[in-house]
Design a protein around this nucleic acid. Structure first.
Length: 309
DNA sequence: CACTTGACCTGTCCGC
DNA sequence: TGCGGACAGGTCAAGT
């Protein structure tokens, strides 16, 4: 479930790996993953050089020397993985949260070491789009659920996409203030706070993980209506949201199930999560047992003692 | 207009 | 063991 920190981590990784490289070939076998016509690929991708890699909300953007860009949405299970040469294999590690190693009987806990890879050799059966660079390296877009997509379009046209016209401000922008945050939340004052945090037109980049984590930090129950939350507590929520997003970027994102960075490696924020996916475990603040419920159509994790409705 | 639900997909897990 | 169904959740379209 790539959210802002996961997409940011992929962008940081790709920036180091592919800026300056030239595209030589592209292959795909699922049209919804790459809807462009071959003529566009030939004219604007093949032979072009990567000039920049950036992120807006949960969208990854690779700018090209042709004034076109690859616009990528990973949705739930998308991955963008760079592999230097055809012969280089990525190491495979167990993906489960708790592992009993058959070789030495040791049990391993947590989301795994941040350097662990979740994927084997590429391409695999989830590979939807394969890019080949002139230096022989490959960039793989993997997405087993096929919700994500890659598309090629003029760089200048990106901002005209409906999504980009409607999407809210970046929560980590230096000039985005608590006052602006509260004003935007209050546009939907009659809705529950979790649904509003997830609304990309209010604030960009927040998904299920960091909504739950920041609400726990601010001691707000997810079903609380925005208008019923005191301004001071909304200000706390703003600080907590920035805290969890920054921490998650520092930890390379959250690997709940599927997410990996540009080198195929997992993120370690889940080792630091306070409520997300910690149902039936003690709250790290008060010790009460964390509960899992459903809010705004999503699995939602709350401490029943810290976060009163 | 505001809000909720369903569709898009496939892999995993749980109960019978 | 095998199978059916629930569940996972980002976004858009359709429904209330």
């Amino acid at each position: 479930m790539p959210e802002l920190p996961e997409v940011e981590t992929v962008a940081i990784g790709l920036r180091k790996l592919i800026v300056g490289l030239s595209f030589q070939d592209l292959h795909f076998d699922w049209a919804k993953s790459f809807p462009n016509a071959q003529a566009d690929v030939d004219a604007f991708l093949i032979g072009s050089q990567v000039t920049a890699v950036r992120r807006r909300a949960k969208v990854l953007i690779i700018d090209l020397s042709t004034q076109y860009s690859l616009v990528i949405h990973l949705k739930m299970t998308g991955q963008m993985v760079y592999v230097k040469t055809k012969d280089e294999r990525l190491k495979t590690k167990d993906t489960r949260l708790k592992i009993k190693d058959v070789t030495d009987g040791e049990e391993r806990f947590g989301a795994g070491h941040p350097n662990d890879s979740l994927i084997g050799s590429l391409p695999d059966k989830s590979t939807r789009v394969t890019f080949t660079f002139a230096n022989g390296a490959h960039l793989y877009f993997n997405d087993f659920r096929k919700f994500g997509w890659v598309r090629l379009m003029p760089t200048i046209a990106i901002e005209e996409l409906d999504f980009f016209k409607k999407v809210g401000p970046e929560p980590l922008d230096a000039d985005f203030t608590a006052t602006q945050f509260i004003d935007r939340l209050m546009r939907r004052k009659n809705s529950n706070i979790k649904a509003v945090l997830l609304d990309q037109t209010v604030i960009a980049g927040v998904g299920n993980i960091y909504a739950d984590e920041s609400l726990w930090g601010a001691k707000i129950h997810p079903t609380t209506l925005v208008k019923d939350i005191p301004p001071a507590q909304l200000k706390t929520l703003f600080r907590e949201l920035q805290f969890v997003l920054n921490l998650a970027i520092e930890k390379g994102g959250s690997t709940d199930r599927n997410y990996v960075n540009a080198e195929g490696k997992r993120g370690s924020y889940m080792d630091f999560a306070r409520v997300f996916r910690r149902e039936k475990l003690p709250c790290p603040r008060c010790g009460a047992v964390i509960e899992k419920t459903r809010v705004a159509g999503r699995g939602t994790h709350v401490c029943p003692h810290c976060q009163l409705p």
